[in-house]
Amino acid sequence: MTIRSYLIWLSLLAWLGIPSSLMASPQTPIGNVVLTEDTVWSGTITIDGVVVVGRKATLTITPGTTILFKRRDVNHDGVGDSEIRVLGGVIAQGSAKQPIVFKSAETKPAPKDWSYLLIFTSGKKNRIEYCQFHDAFSGLQVHFSTALVQDCLFSHNLEGIRFGRAKLTLRHCLINENHIGVRFTRMEGPVEIQYNEINNNQVGIFLVPSGQNIVDFFEPGRTGKPWNEGHLDISANNIRMNSDYNLKLGAKQLWDLKITNNWWGIVTRADIRQTLFDQHRDPDLGRAIIEPTAPQTIVDAGIRQLPANHHATK
């Protein structure tokens, strides 16, 4: 059975609310299972495969919980298959002293060891607070859902966080040492990205419309005003020291984007421009409108009461 067909049957079970007989004790790895009722996780949970949170269920994860993902790559695409797919709801509220940790179960962990915590077509208000994501393809993905993500650490993933059409607030997070820190694929919202510390990634923020739409729903020409006004607010962040670019517009991002009042780690406009990939590099792309910039470091950015064992660039 292919992974896709397996997921289809798991999703079907989740949709219909049919209980699964594959539940395991916390000591035994959980995999290829549908949670059909409200579930609480604590302690250490090991996942080997796909865990689907069914439409009627909410997964609550208590402070101090560690969730380990075993690496398995059945289709040899270079990405570990273990994941949590939330169709119902998820409440993961750690604390500064007791964060919730999502990471690889491998002895030599590496980015892409596991897929992601995916919130997909959830009808509930999801909360992800004081969580840490490591070693994933994407630590967290949110699509067609509502989520509050705050005081989280995304580090050593291929992508820290990716989202598409979503009602999302991302604030007070530390996003560092990923290939891509933040990836946004829809430019629709409302989305607020504020008071985050985004540093030492290869690319800090990557704004790239999906290249997989068969039908292009975007308007055919540039309108002359910023595309994101009123539904995408990226402000009051420290976006700095990302090795390739602090901000990159991907192919098909043809419209200007307003991304003002952020601190880019440097003062002069010409130097800041060197850290951006937009129309100045490729005439096909839109412009990143960054002025006015913040005059200095946003002191309130990043995780509030950061755990003592992690060093943030301040």
């Binding site: 289809i8 999703s11 079907l12 695409d77 992601y116 995916l118 993905q141 699509h143 990716r162 999906s210």
Partner: peptide
């Protein structure tokens, strides 16, 4: 419905 959902999901989460 689930086939549609999973295909849409593929497009969102990324394919290799």
């Amino acid at each position: 419905l689930m086939l549609i959902q999973n295909n849409v999901c593929d497009a969102c989460v990324g394919r290799t």
